[in-house]
Design a protein around this nucleic acid. Structure first.
Length: 907
RNA sequence: GGACGCAUAGCUCAGUUGGUUAGAGCGUUACAUUGACAUUGUAAAGGUCGGAGGUCCGAAUCCUCCUGCGUCCACCA
């Protein structure tokens, strides 16, 4: 199956351009294109992505040997909001997901990465309304009407959506475009309606009158998770309702006191105990005189303020809870809403106040208190107020009828509540099944999650905005039908829409066909892995677990990896207001996608923030280019790159490098399994640059006959790097004429282990140290690299590798013997290296150097001796440690002897 | 108020269950570069692992307290 998407003509054009070049002889045939001096990502990335699309391999069913791929690996891509364009955070997420997906594909699994976008109900509507208002509309909802405004939003969303999808491709993400989903398309709407119906029938979804978080500007409710608190200066007023009222109370919201119906005190508070149960009638200027009942409540802090709390059930969630408690206890108090949905005082607030906004009402009420001599004190304080970042206004607590999801009610068929399910999913596993347990990384996030589970309140799921899944409920003459459009005339659908998280919470299974029992659902759910920002623990992860556990009795994903947020080079968050935003597409244009991906993954550990800077991208680009040039060099030397199935190491160095490769494969595999992308990158970099390029390739210039091994290692190196830098590795791999790297096989550790079972690491380490010692002396005496030096070794074992030493350390004659007169020396393990420096040796300098080394070595011997003489150490430390310490001591003692000899020979 | 995290080289960070004379990248310095790679090479300098106690034969690593920074939650009416 071939997947082609509209708007992807650019890659094709590039391909044609390259064909055109090749006819001019500027580039070679497709089978083995020549290596340019430096890798230029701009010319090849789009064509490679198109090649992958054409192969169809992003769709797991099209993978080679599909039937033999036993294991399944699936990821549901967190759908980006259609509110704009992708930013660096998305690039990070794509890099994480795609690295994981590609690794698993190379391992030979059926890999599915489902792409999609989120209609992001409230943020999208808020953004479009803002834009329309900028264009001159005063009240878009009024002026355009429901259909008109939704059409405008849809238009914007579609455009934004296609931009985002093309950006995901630019990141190289290997997702299955044939399964592309959208939280607001028809299949997802079916899932949402079905879920609503089931939850309603189970009594979990209900309609209820209570205090909600209300945005006056947005004219909609918000859930507890969508509001944030900001600090602001406020005044704390202490006052009495009337001259004869026995208790003073404090407030920062005097205007709401027009709706007070009780005063709460601590039940044990001796000052107020005698008033508990009494009702006082006071006239503060509201429509009706207030009947204030004195009630007892455990939660009142007797030490704070006056120790008494004015209760406003209509405009405070806490006070509303007291109101409900009183009602339950058969001791009800009244509820009087004095602020309306428009943010203005209601008629209940009284003639004087109706129509005023809260600030005006506050001023007026305070003035009245002052005039009546009821105001006892006012104090400047800082206060946290609830706001929302979408409309930017203060959230008012207002009571109204809304749809709620009950987290405490026992679900009929399950015998437990949604809260229970949320808890089980990360502890025992659903129903105690270990296979239905979500593993969370970093571990500490589990605790944060569980804390929240315990304090979870019912979730307000209805919104008054228009962009979103409409509540699937119809009314007619007091009748109500849920989920299906009823037959007959005159039915009116509920005006409200669902909280956007209601639909995105179904993402892992609605994208696989639920509520139909599809093969996809059976094969790919629960999904294997999920990554998200740690700010999404409550907002999204919790809701996904909730919905999946309820609808399927399955967890949505087996593992979840929380990444931190990206900060700039100064540690600041990226934001529009700071002007430090970075456009990933510009970075890609300049440095290439591979460099961007690597720079985002290096230093990114679970739960921790990481920094992004152009410098980092630069150094990642250098790494990409290094791999390019390693390949270029090998290809120039071995003639043609080709696949080599097995190798037979001939020399020490062959065994050593294959041993390094084996270790690297083992470590990187393990790190992938632990989602430790950062360390995996570092391990690979070390192997690539230091072991392979700086040592082995340099040695290969001297020791010939390594063509097979070079091919063997390079091919595996490309496979290992592919998850991190898919483009450049695929581009180089084309020269192997061995199919597509995308579906290559991850190196087999067992094969490698067999080949390298007899590696003599010690000898190679000595060889390296010998060469480094000579280079060190050369640098110290500023011998130019061109100039050859004569070297005398004390140990003849290493002489077997004289060719390598001569080449890598720029040596003229290499012999075994005693120290020449004019020479600088170094101790390497149990051997000595002397570099003849006719007329160059600075005896004083040498002496000082040796003496300094003697001092430190002797000190070390002292410490080691003490350690080994310590009976406790010898008796309690493991044998392995003791042997190690003894060996180190022996080496140090030998070193002292040699240094002393060198010193005495200098006289 | 509650919870959590971080503190290691000039900068950004590794350091896996306690056993190194504590590492990397970038930056710095010196020398070099017709050579696969100036997107390079070789080498060097640079740290009493935030502070104080404790456990242990042994602590960057475990425990307690303190200091500084950060994050989340709750919200004081």
């Amino acid at each position: 199956m071939k997947v082609k998407l509209p708007g992807w003509g650019f890659g094709l054009q590039l391909l044609l351009f390259y064909r055109f070049l090749s006819t001019l002889g500027l580039s070679m045939n497709d089978s083995s294109p020549e290596f340019m001096k430096a890798y230029e990502p701009q010319g090849v990335e789009d064509a490679i992505y198109q090649k992958w699309l054409d192969s169809g391999y992003f769709t797991p069913e099209n993978l080679p040997d599909f039937a033999e791929r036993k294991e399944v690996f699936s990821i549901a891509m967190p759908p980006p909001n259609v509110t704009g364009v992708l930013h660096l955070g998305h690039s990070l997420e794509n890099s994480l997901m795609d690295a994981m997906a590609r690794y698993q594909r190379l391992l030979g699994k059926k890999v599915l990465l489902v792409p999609g976008t989120d209609h992001a109900a409230l943020p999208t509507q808020a953004r479009v309304e803002k834009m329309l208002m900028k264009d001159g509309l005063k009240n878009p909802r009024q002026e355009l009407g429901r259909e008109g405004l939704v059409a405008k939003i849809r238009e914007y969303a579609e455009q934004s959506r296609s931009t985002i999808l093309s950006q995901i491709k630019k990141m190289g993400t290997s997702c299955d475009w044939s399964r592309l989903a959208y939280t607001f398309d028809e299949p997802r709407n079916v899932a949402v309606n079905e879920l609503f119906k089931r939850m309603y029938n189970d009594g979990l979804i209900y309609r209820g009158y209570r205090v909600v978080n209300w945005s006056v500007k947005g004219q909609s409710t918000f859930s507890d998770d969508e509001i944030m608190h900001v600090e602001r200066a406020a005044k704390l007023y202490t006052f009495k309702y009337g001259k004869d009222f026995p208790i003073a109370i404090a407030t920062t919201r005097p205007e709401t006191k027009l709706g007070d119906t009780a005063v709460a005190v601590h039940p044990d508070d001796e000052r107020y105990q005698k008033f508990i149960g009494q009702t006082f009638t006071v006239d503060v200027g509201a429509a009706e005189p207030l009947k204030i009942k004195i009630i007892a409540d455990q939660n009142v802090d007797p030490k704070f303020g006056t120790g008494a709390l004015g209760v406003t059930p209509a405009h405070s969630a806490i006070d509303f809870a007291m109101y409900e408690l009183q009602k339950m206890q058969g001791n009800p108090i009244e509820i009087i809403p004095v602020i309306g949905k428009d943010g203005k005082m209601t008629a209940a607030a009284g003639q004087e106040y109706v129509g005023l906004n809260v600030e005006e009402a506050r001023e007026k009420f305070v003035a009245w208190l002052r005039a009546q001599d009821l105001l006892i004190s006012e104090e400047d304080i800082t206060q946290n107020v609830a706001t929302n970042d979408r409309y930017g206004d203060v959230i008012e607590a207002i009571p109204m009828e809304q749809w709620w999801l009950d987290v405490n009610k026992t679900i009929p068929q399950m015998g437990k509540s949604l809260r229970d399910l949320l808890r089980e999913a990360v502890t025992s596993g659903l129903n105690g099944e270990a296979a239905q347990k979500v593993d969370i990384s970093p571990e500490r996030s589990i605790k944060i999650y569980l804390d929240r589970v315990e304090s979870l309140r019912d979730w307000c799921i209805s919104r008054q905005i228009w962009w979103g899944h409409r509540i699937p409920v119809w009314y007619k003459d007091g009748e109500m039908v849920v989920s299906e459009v009823p037959m007959g005339e005159g039915w009116v659908q509920d005006e409200d829409t669902l909280d956007t998280w209601f639909s995105s919470a179904t993402w892992t299974f609605s994208t696989l066909g639920w509520p139909k029992q599809t093969a996809d659902l059976a094969t790919y759910h629960p999904t294997s892995w999920m990554q998200m920002g740690s700010d999404n623990i409550y907002l999204w992860m919790m809701r996904m677990i909730l919905m999946s556990a309820y609808a399927l009795q399955q967890i949505p994903f087996k593992e979840v990896y929380f990444h931190g947020i990206l900060r700039d080079d100064q540690g600041r968050k990226f934001s529009k207001s700071l002007g430090n935003s970075v456009d990933p597409l510009e970075v890609i244009a300049q440095y290439g996608c591979d460099a961007l991906r690597v720079s985002l993954l290096v230093g990114n550990t679970p739960g921790n923030d990481s920094r992004f800077s152009e410098e980092r991208v630069g150094s990642a680009r250098n790494l990409v280019n290094k791999i390019w040039n390693i390949s270029r060099y090998i290809s120039m030397n071995v003639g043609e790159l080709r696949h080599v199935e097995l190798v037979f190491p001939k020399t020490l160095t062959d065994k050593w490098i294959l041993g390094c490769l084996a270790q690297t494969v083992e470590k990187v595999s393990k790190l992938f399994d632990q989602s430790d992308f950062s360390l995996a990158t570092e391990i690979l970099r070390e192997f690539t640059w230091t072991d392979f390029a700086d040592w082995y390739l340099e040695i290969a210039k001297v020791e010939k006959g390594k063509d097979d091994i070079l091919n063997y290692i390079l091919e595996r190196l490309l496979i290992l790097w592919h998850p991190f830098m898919p483009f450049v590795t695929e581009e180089i791999y084309a020269r192997f004429n061995n199919g597509m790297l995308l579906v290559a096989k991850w190196p087999d550790i067992e094969d490698l282990k067999e080949v390298t079972s007899s590696v003599d690491h010690l000898t190679f380490t000595n060889l390296q140290a010998t060469i480094s010692a000579i280079r060190n002396i050369r640098a110290e005496y500023q011998v130019t690299p061109k100039q050859l030096v004569d070297v005398v070794l004390s140990d003849k074992e290493i002489l077997a590798y004289s060719d390598i030493i001569i080449a890598l350390a720029k040596v003229r004659y290499l012999t075994v013997g005693v120290k020449p007169e004019q020479a600088a020396s170094a101790v390497v393990g149990f051997a000595e290296v002397h570099v003849s420096l006719e007329g160059l040796v600075d005896t004083e300098k040498e002496r000082t150097k040796i003496e300094a080394e003697l001092v430190s070595t002797k000190k070390y011997i002292e410490v080691q001796t003490m350690k080994l003489d310590n009976a406790d150490f010898v008796s309690r430390a493991p044998e392995k440690v003791i042997l190690g310490e003894k060996a180190k001591l022996a080496e140090a003692i030998d070193k002292v002897t040699k240094l002393e000899q060198q010193l005495s020979s200098m006289k």
